[in-house]
Design a protein around this nucleic acid. Structure first.
Length: 255
DNA sequence: ATGGTGGATGGTCCA
């Protein structure tokens, strides 16, 4: 089973690129973030035409997540089971061929110390609670998406320069570490040990051209599933195209 | 120098 995650930054703008990409890579499961559209406008017909079922949880202008699959998508749940999510559409989960998939768009957090940063930390705590109370780490479980956190210094272009700032600050890394400690493995790091491999580059200041990026899009797996992970790669090709998303897809292959 | 670029929107907000 091939599982991918991609923050598309608007499903409507990126739909042609997404369809091309699906037909090239033929992933079995694709988790999307920042679809930025209400459910009534989600282009499920066009995705159905190329062989993908869709489940989506969107809102106007911001956020929005979706799961696509060429296999039946079962037991779909949207948002946190417990507690208020302030109406932001950032989590969708489902079961596909006995693999439980949790797709998240973790809040960006804006700047350390801001109210959005506090919201990010709170959201991470709720994610921990949600998984601890609703999932079995002994099963085949995936937690993937745009985490908006570079977990290690080698996941950002200049650790000294960005030390303590958003996406790398101690508090958010610590909160995410607690989620990981439930029993997840970072599948990318099972197979790739080198520094300087990124999944997001700011649109501004020519960051992509200068490779000023961060690895913030992740595919984590429970140990039983991680043991079946053959390979993981970041596909930079879509980021090089005209009018790209600012994120590149990450693709994991399980046998 | 609080920029710069892109998306949704129709003023700015968000990333």
């Amino acid at each position: 089973m091939i599982i991918a995650t991609w923050n598309v930054n608007s499903i409507s703008v990126r739909l042609p690129q997404l369809i091309d990409w699906l037909q090239t890579h033929k992933p079995n499961v694709v988790c999307l973030q920042e679809t930025k559209t209400v459910d009534d406008k989600f282009p499920f017909e066009k995705l159905s035409e190329v062989g993908y079922n869709c489940e989506f949880f969107g809102e106007r202008s911001y956020n929005g997540v979706a799961i696509l699959s060429d296999r039946p998508i079962m037991n779909v749940r949207k948002g946190f089971i417990d507690g208020d999510e302030q109406s932001q559409k950032r989590l969708i989960e489902a079961e596909i061929d006995s693999v439980h998939i949790i797709n998240v768009y973790i809040p960006n957090g804006s700047a350390v110390g801001s109210s959005k940063y506090e919201f990010k930390l709170d959201w991470l705590q709720r994610l921990h609670h949600h998984i601890a109370h609703n999932h079995d780490m002994n099963k085949q479980l995936v937690l993937c998406g745009d985490f908006n956190i570079a977990t290690e210094d080698i996941d950002c272009y200049n650790a000294e320069l960005v030390k303590g700032t958003i996406m790398v600050s101690d508090a958010e890394r610590s909160s995410l570490d607690q989620v990981k400690a439930l029993g997840f493995v970072d599948t990318f790091r099972m197979h790739n040990k080198e520094a300087g491999q990124f999944s997001w580059w700011d649109y501004r200041m020519g960051c992509f051209r200068r490779n000023m990026g961060f690895r913030i899009d992740h595919i984590w797996a429970s140990e039983s599933l991680a043991s079946q992970c053959e390979s993981v790669f970041i596909d930079k090709a879509p980021r090089k195209m005209e009018r790209p998303s600012d994120h590149a897809p990450v693709v994991a292959k399980f046998n």
